[in-house]
């Protein structure tokens, strides 16, 4: 009888051990759980590139005083590209570094001694705006992402004290 009881105890122990092993093998999701969700977000992005790095006025030939030079006449029309922008933009130009000797005419001024004037046009000079150093001039408002050609005009000084 004692032996039988012992066997029963052994069987119970085995059963409990097996149960514990089975529980240990159950995926951990029973002891924790998770769920996921996404955030989607898109920011205002404005990308602007200009297709040329430079305009060598008059193809590098010394310019005459009191003369006018155009990018469109030299096949150097610029193109502003905002294709990658996610919003409409205003495109502006500003002279951020002036010539060493020649300086840009201030707003409304004309070319003078050692003073040049730079203007811009989107429509081959039907309309034009002056580009100055003190602030950025809008050349195109509410431009949808894409490209916008523009031309520059330089009015050379009427007198120069130095040759650049």
């Amino acid at each position: 009888m004692e032996k039988i009881n012992k066997k029963i105890k052994v069987l119970m122990l085995v059963t409990v051990t097996v149960e514990a092993m089975v529980l240990a093998a159950i995926p951990s999701t029973l002891a924790s759980d998770h769920d996921t969700f996404n955030l989607t977000v898109k920011g205002y992005y404005i990308g602007l590139t200009v297709d040329r790095d430079s305009w060598n006025v008059n193809h590098g030939v010394p310019v005459e005083l009191s003369s006018t030079y155009y990018t469109n006449a030299e096949s150097k029309t610029f193109t502003a590209n905002t294709t990658t922008s996610s919003v409409n933009v205003n495109v502006k130009l500003q002279i951020t570094t002036d010539g060493a000797i020649w300086h840009e005419a201030t707003s409304g001024q004309n070319a003078g001694a050692d003073r040049y004037k730079l203007s811009e046009s989107l429509d081959l000079w039907l309309h034009q705006v002056q580009i100055v150093t003190t602030s950025a001039t809008t050349i195109k408002s509410d431009m949808t992402p894409g490209t916008q050609p523009f031309d520059l005009k330089m009015n050379t000084p009427n007198v120069v004290h130095h040759r650049i």
Binding site: A31, S32, H34, T36, F37, L39, T40, G43, Y45, S85
Partner: peptide, 25 residues
Amino acid sequence: LKFMSPTSTTTGTQQTITVTASAIA
């Protein structure tokens, strides 16, 4: 949730961010 946008961006492409919520004892 509060989403604080970057100070500037180099992309106009939509960003997708996945958040996992989990529960433990």
